[in-house]
Measured scan of single mutants.
Amino acid sequence: KRPVSAMFIFSEEKRRQLQEERPELSESELTRLLARMWNDLSEKKKAKYKAREAALKAQSER
């Protein structure tokens, strides 16, 4: 099983909040919005998710 990506971790963290704030969005619209949010995120903020990705990857390799 492959470890999850930093973007996937970000998306899972933000998805529920966005669904509550924007219930009119379809699943595909929500996914596009999350992708745009990820792309607009600064490298400094992405680092938090990339660190979690690395930790999960290291854990799965044990």
Results as ranks from 00 to 15, higher is better:
Lys1Cys: 02
Lys1Tyr: 08
Lys1Ala: 03
Lys1Ile: 14
Arg2Gly: 04
Arg2Glu: 07
Pro3Leu: 10
Pro3Val: 13
Val4Lys: 11
Val4Trp: 01
Ser5Val: 05
Ser5Cys: 06
Ala6Pro: 03
Ala6Phe: 01
Ala6Gln: 02
Met7Tyr: 14
Ile9Ser: 05
Ile9Asp: 01
Ile9Cys: 10
Phe10Gly: 01
Phe10Cys: 00
Ser11Ala: 10
Ser11Phe: 13
Ser11Tyr: 15
Glu13Lys: 08
Glu13Ile: 05
Glu13Phe: 02
Glu13Asn: 02
Glu13Thr: 06
Glu13Ala: 04
Lys14His: 15
Lys14Glu: 04
Lys14Tyr: 12
Lys14Leu: 08
Lys14Cys: 02
Arg15Val: 03
Arg15Tyr: 03
Arg16Ser: 14
Arg16Trp: 08
Arg16Pro: 14
Gln17Tyr: 06
Gln17Gly: 12
Gln17Cys: 04
Gln17Val: 14
Leu18Gly: 00
Leu18Lys: 02
Leu18Thr: 09
Leu18Phe: 09
Leu18Val: 13
Leu18Trp: 02
Gln19Ile: 15
Gln19Trp: 06
Glu20Trp: 06
Glu20His: 09
Glu20Met: 09
Glu21His: 06
Glu21Phe: 04
Glu21Asn: 15
Glu21Gln: 14
Arg22Ser: 07
Pro23Ile: 05
Pro23Lys: 05
Pro23Thr: 04
Pro23Cys: 05
Pro23Val: 03
Pro23Gln: 03
Glu24Trp: 09
Glu24Thr: 07
Glu24Asp: 15
Glu24Ala: 08
Leu25His: 00
Leu25Gln: 01
Ser26Lys: 01
Ser26Arg: 06
Ser26Ala: 08
Ser26Asp: 06
Glu27Pro: 10
Glu27Met: 02
Glu27Cys: 06
Ser28Asp: 15
Ser28Asn: 11
Ser28Phe: 10
Ser28Glu: 14
Ser28Lys: 12
Ser28His: 11
Glu29Pro: 00
Glu29Leu: 03
Glu29Thr: 06
Glu29Met: 05
Glu29Lys: 04
Glu29Trp: 01
Leu30Pro: 00
Thr31Asn: 15
Thr31His: 10
Arg32Pro: 08
Arg32Gln: 11
Arg32Thr: 14
Arg32Val: 07
Leu33Val: 10
Leu33His: 13
Leu33Ala: 07
Leu33Gln: 09
Leu34His: 00
Leu34Asn: 00
Ala35Glu: 14
Ala35Met: 08
Ala35Gly: 10
Ala35Leu: 11
Arg36Phe: 09
Arg36Trp: 05
Arg36Met: 08
Met37Arg: 06
Trp38Leu: 00
Trp38Tyr: 06
Trp38Pro: 01
Asn39Ala: 12
Asn39Phe: 11
Asn39Tyr: 10
Asn39Leu: 07
Asn39Thr: 12
Asp40Ile: 00
Asp40Tyr: 04
Leu41Ser: 04
Leu41Lys: 01
Leu41Gly: 00
Ser42Cys: 06
Lys44Val: 13
Lys44Gly: 13
Lys44Pro: 12
Lys44Asp: 15
Lys45Glu: 15
Lys45Arg: 11
Lys46Cys: 01
Lys46Leu: 02
Lys46Val: 03
Lys46Asn: 00
Ala47Asn: 03
Ala47Val: 08
Ala47Ser: 12
Ala47Glu: 12
Ala47Tyr: 07
Ala47Trp: 06
Lys48Asn: 15
Lys48Trp: 09
Lys48Leu: 08
Lys48Ile: 03
Tyr49His: 01
Tyr49Asp: 01
Tyr49Glu: 01
Lys50Asp: 05
Lys50Thr: 11
Lys50Arg: 13
Ala51Tyr: 09
Ala51Pro: 02
Ala51Asp: 08
Ala51Glu: 13
Ala51Met: 11
Ala51Trp: 04
Arg52Cys: 08
Arg52Met: 09
Arg52Asp: 08
Arg52Asn: 03
Glu53Thr: 04
Glu53Tyr: 07
Glu53Lys: 02
Glu53Asp: 07
Ala54Pro: 03
Ala54His: 14
Ala54Cys: 11
Ala55Lys: 11
Ala55Tyr: 06
Leu56Ile: 14
Leu56Ser: 15
Leu56Trp: 08
Leu56Asp: 10
Lys57Ser: 14
Lys57Trp: 06
Ala58Cys: 10
Ala58Ile: 15
Ala58Thr: 11
Ala58Gln: 14
Ala58Phe: 13
Gln59Lys: 15
Gln59His: 08
Gln59Thr: 13
Gln59Tyr: 03
Ser60Tyr: 06
Ser60Lys: 13
Ser60Gly: 15
Ser60Met: 08
Glu61Tyr: 05
Glu61Gly: 10
Arg62Asp: 15
Arg62Ala: 15
Arg62Gln: 14
